[in-house]
């Protein structure tokens, strides 16, 4: 009786997702391994011989890596500061963090076009101060993509880290202090190790998110392709569905790979707790 009840509740959702998500995804992956004569990995072999594609893949990985590192470097101290604030101020700061997170990525990427464009705020400022004599080319470069992605994902890592840091009992910090730890020692020996789980989850979210983000590179990258814009270009502009399917499969594979590597890393860094 109870069992049937349970299935009844879960079945509609499971069926829906299976038909409209799982099947399309697996078909997309599946078709890349077959041609007229049966099973093949020729498509992938051709792909990894293609300099242009390798270039795009490496650029995307590099951009994602930089984005992740910058997000950690900016986000960790800020999250620590926020987690130490009083209840009210903390709530306000969290609202300020969550607001950009909920704001349309089109809006957020567009705002950077206004800032780093040729006639943008930064160039105007630097020109008027006489620090440069012709506008810098930031927009439509990998740097622009990194800036946009950091802006996109920084709130995510802050919010994740605040969640983890809030849960570090203050008694632990006091205990460390009473044992002679300076503020710096408390930070490096207690807070950082205990934040590792949040740091790992946050890094996964940022890295995978940057690796697969579309809007930001589409707006800020110009001619500079990354893997997601490459996928879109093949699917829509070039109508190369087989190529697009292979790119899609590679993206899924990299995503899975990154998540498992990071999880493995997390286990190693923090065997207990």
């Amino acid at each position: 009786m109870k069992k049937r009840y349970l299935y009844l509740l879960l079945l509609p959702g499971v069926l829906f997702l299976t038909i409209f998500m799982i099947v399309p995804i697996f078909l997309t992956i599946g078709t890349t391994f077959f041609n007229e004569s049966g099973f093949t990995i020729q498509g992938y072999l051709d792909f990894f011989k293609d300099r242009y594609f390798i270039e795009i893949l490496l650029t995307t990985l590099r951009v994602s890596l930089f984005t992740t590192i910058i997000c950690i470097l900016l986000g960790f101290p800020a999250a620590y500061y926020i987690s130490k604030l009083g209840k009210r101020t903390k709530a306000i700061m969290l609202l300020f963090t969550i607001f950009p997170l909920l704001t349309s990525p089109v809006v957020r990427s567009f705002s950077w076009m206004v800032i780093i464009g040729k006639n943008g705020v930064i160039n105007k400022l630097l020109l008027s101060m006489g620090l440069i004599d012709k506008p810098l080319d930031i927009l439509y470069t990998p740097t622009a993509i990194i800036i946009g992605l950091v802006h996109l994902f920084l709130p995510l890592i802050i919010v994740t880290l605040v969640g983890v840091m809030e849960n570090i009992e203050t008694d632990l910090l006091k205990a460390a202090e009473s044992l002679g730890a300076s503020r710096l020692a408390v930070f490096s020996k207690v807070i950082i190790p205990l934040s590792v789980p949040g740091l790992v989850i946050g890094s996964i979210l940022v890295f995978v998110g940057s690796f697969t983000a579309y809007t930001t590179p589409a707006l800020l990258g110009g001619k500079q392709r990354v893997i997601s814009t490459f996928l879109y270009q093949n699917a829509i502009t070039l109508n190369e569905w087989q190529v697009a399917s292979i790119v899609a499969t590679i993206m899924i594979a990299v995503t899975v790979l990154i998540i498992s590597i990071m999880n493995g890393l997390a286990k190693k860094l923090n065997p207990k707790g």
Partner: peptide
């Protein structure tokens, strides 16, 4: 250099 023993132990889980 005073030792403090907490009610909830406050052992470092890591």
């Amino acid at each position: 250099n005073f030792g403090f023993v907490f009610q909830n132990y406050a052992l470092f889980p890591h």
